[in-house]
Amino acid sequence: MLKMQSIRKSYRTDTIETHALRDFSLAVDEGEFVSVTGPSGSGKTTFLNIAGLLETPTSGQYLLDDEDVGNLNDRDRSRMRNEKIGFIFQGFNLIPDLSLFDNIDVPLRYRGLKGRERKKRIEKALEQVGLSARAKHLPAQLSGGQQQRVAIARALAGEPRFLLADEPTGNLDSLMARQVMELLEFINEWGTTIVMVTHDPDLARRAHRNIQIVDGQVADLQHGAASATAEIA
């Protein structure tokens, strides 16, 4: 599904060059649930941005579904992001002046789906996260947990094969966090590959395996209880 080989990502200012990822290699198989942990500034989010095609590596090779994304232009990268990848963020990143329905509609619009198909998918996604009755509400009218469920619904509506979650429970209380985690596990059971960045060791343990990133490199690999099929390339 995902294969990164010797990825390097550095940010340069006039005087300083910062290496966010160095010789970073990782493979994630179809259907896996991988948690990514590490101290702040270790490169977790940079890894997630590169995996989600939001940033390009300075060097190295990234294959997504066996396609070298380094060769793609912005339009093709955007299409691949839209069709194959779903995002869940710590801050939910819902658009505040759009209703829940319209928020979930955003990725479907960019895919060019017809109105009827979009409506069907949005209603189904809202039903999956238990918010069908709140379709017309604005994000600000919901609790944090509900907003994160909307963000998950937005990701689900596009039927992605690959879900990237950046501290999805970071802004939630423990009860809400548990609900969201259960929802992610449920989604994974249905075949969606999930990579989740988290600071919470309990949540990390619930994944199939945990990747630890330190100083921009994979520091450790722990196999979880279930299907641990990934390997460091």
Binding site: G52, L54, D74, R75, S78, R79, R81, N82, E83, F87, N93, L94, I95, V106, P107, Y110, R111, R154, G158
Partner: peptide
């Protein structure tokens, strides 16, 4: 908001 849209599949041209 533009960042979110980009993450959800909007190209720079969109």
């Amino acid at each position: 908001e533009a960042g979110v849209r980009r993450a959800l599949g909007a190209s720079g041209r969109s």
